[in-house]
Write a protein that binds this DNA or RNA. Structure first.
Lengths: 353, 353
DNA sequence: GCAATTTATGAAACCGGTTACTGTTTACGA
DNA sequence: TCGTAAACAGTAACCGGTTTCATAAATTGC
């Protein structure tokens, strides 16, 4: 069964395709009786205009591409939900491009991102949003910046939490430094003096910045930063476990509190601590970063810095919409402040025995 | 700057567009020197063929649509990852359609699903995968089945965990009944006699089936099912908390074990139990359903039935690919068995005081 | 009542590719 | 050397819409 086209409708209604198009788009006056006749035929045949054909000539597809490194990381669905909320009201639909970075090396990821950038351009998306992944690498090669810049010359690109150095992109970012600083100050305010930092990758900008915030808070409080109490190398629960165990294995006085680069590693740290007989928060305070949905649901509930992912997504979508629809030049940089969410995993240190 | 087209390349290479197309698609022999000349121009101008134009005539887009109710529910990203893995190798890209059902009433969700179905068809996707949502409602109206059936006449549709009654669709489902039965048997095998069931929505087929499996196991073990120990009305953590509190508020002997309709409500139940001074699993065993990523990471680690979401996704994607590429008729129904994952939240009951 | 608009519609070009059809060369076997 | 098949390339139709331009009919103003 051939799909029905404007021509079929036009023929049966004894009008030209132009007229059919006009009633479809309300783009010019059409006699009421004609309009009704056409509408009825559309209804009768369940006619649906072919979006490809329409987009081909209108040069807009209503599609936006989203490139992210790992959809199973709970941070991304949250951002996605924000994007969706905002973009739906503007009539966009999403291409989801998951580069599946979680268990790949960086080169594979880069290649996937390049691939997806090309595919998205071929599909004529109206704009692209990139979250995490390569754009989160503090030290990413010049070719990559150049490649994204090249794309950005053809269509709007918005980076979320992105940090492609040496190039101008529209970005909406979280103030990681200030966030980590406030997280650390929360612990200091509780009376902790021996604070460690674990999690993340030193090559990634979010880690670098969170670490910077941590150090900043410590310095301002006049407290020394112990280099061996800074352990990075992963964002996962297992990484968190390993880091905490490493911390305990050092011997000597252990930290009474830990700032984690993200919630997942915080959860891992808590698990490892509990396994080792420490109680959280009584013996060890742990603060996370991200506020993923389950942070509120682990035991003990995790104190963390909320990234307000929904807002991150919504903001990015609305900026992209502005760029697409009016080519309008909005602020190049939008900064969102993370928010301290105090739950159960942090408390004043117990007096040492 | 106008995008470059095959015509531009053809003109500059002194050939016809047909020849350019031939080197692009390797669809007919082209003289080596000509080919090279064209390739160089493509390279030089960064030419990317317009996928819309191509799809318009080829009648295939390489796009598949995914309709799901709530991307922030961790079950769906997991399935999505499976879909992506499989589909990427076949060159498909995804439209993500989140109906955002979590905080909407059913009617809104239905409407959104209809909308998305239409949009996807207009965009000429090659196929559609529907997960959860309306298709999970045991009692869904005739119009809805009809609507999806109508879509299915035009392009392949695969349902994941779907149960549109009275119509033939390709489906890949999890054997919920047998899964819940085995979960319950696990508890019975540990020596539990007083077992409750909480979570889910009675209108949804997965809940109905999980409950059925629960009752089946109890009956076969010759144990009575207490109606007032079956509490439904939600899948969330908060729902789980509320259900457990309701259970405790009943007075009289409390259950020593609980089968939960999903992991989230299981986590809620554990939280509420711990708040009430019960220890898990010592005082109360809890088993979940789904095996979301964080099930392994809460404290205590959650014993649950793994849905093998990745496999679910991969299977659906490969079936859809078969349907698209060869119109081949695969099995209409593929059933996957959930797998018992024993962790820390279940143990033999303690002797009653 | 007639010129000037406005309304209503059709013909045809266009978007950017693919491909069926056709024609010209070249290669190869006898 | 000739005939035939394969290699190579171009012309034009096509996919299914939108939109410009032109034209005819209906309104409006004076």
């Amino acid at each position: 069964m051939k799909p029905v086209t404007v021509y079929d409708i036009a023929r049966e209604a004894n009008v030209s395709v132009a007229t059919v198009s006009r009633v479809l788009n309300n783009t010019a006056p059409v006699k009421a009786s004609t309009r009704e006749r056409i509408m009825n035929l559309i209804q009768k045949h369940q006619f649906q205009p072919n979006a490809l054909a329409r987009s081909l000539i209108k040069k807009e597809t209503g599609m936006i591409g989203i490139i992210l490194p790992d959809i199973t990381n709970p941070f991304f669905p949250e951002v996605l939900a924000g994007l969706e909320q905002e973009a739906r009201s503007n009539g966009y639909t999403f291409f989801l491009c998951d580069t599946g970075s979680s268990n790949q090396d960086h080169n594979v990821q880069y290649q996937r991102e390049s691939e997806y950038l090309n595919i998205l351009m071929e599909k004529q998306v109206d704009g692209i949003i990139m979250i995490g992944g390569r754009i989160d690498l503090a030290k990413c090669s010049r070719e990559m910046v150049k490649e994204v810049a090249e794309v950005n010359k053809r269509l709007p690109v918005v980076l979320i939490n992105g940090n492609l150095p040496g190039a101008k992109f529209h970005r909406v970012i979280v103030d990681e430094i200030s966030g980590a600083k406030r997280a650390t100050e929360h612990l200091i305010g509780l009376g902790h003096k021996d604070i460690a930092f674990i999690g993340g990758y030193k090559q990634m900008s979010n880690t670098v910045q969170r670490l910077e915030g941590f150090c900043l808070a410590m310095e301002q409080a006049g407290m020394p930063v112990r280099e061996d109490w800074i352990i990075t190398g992963g964002f996962s629960v297992d990484a968190g476990k390993a880091f905490l165990n490493a911390l305990l294995a050092m011997g000597g006085p252990r930290p009474t509190a830990i700032v984690c680069a993200n919630d997942l590693s915080a959860i891992g740290a808590i698990k490892a601590a509990v396994k080792s007989g420490l109680r959280v928060p009584d013996d060890l305070s742990v603060i996370g970063f991200d506020d993923i949905p389950l942070a509120a649901n682990v035991i003990p509930e995790l104190t963390t810095m909320s990234l307000k992912c929904l807002e991150l997504g919504r903001t990015a979508a609305s900026i992209l919409h502005l760029l697409i629809s009016r080519g309008e030049d909005t602020n190049e940089l939008t900064t969102l402040q993370p928010e301290l969410v105090v739950r159960e995993s942090t408390a004043p240190p117990r007096a040492r025995g």
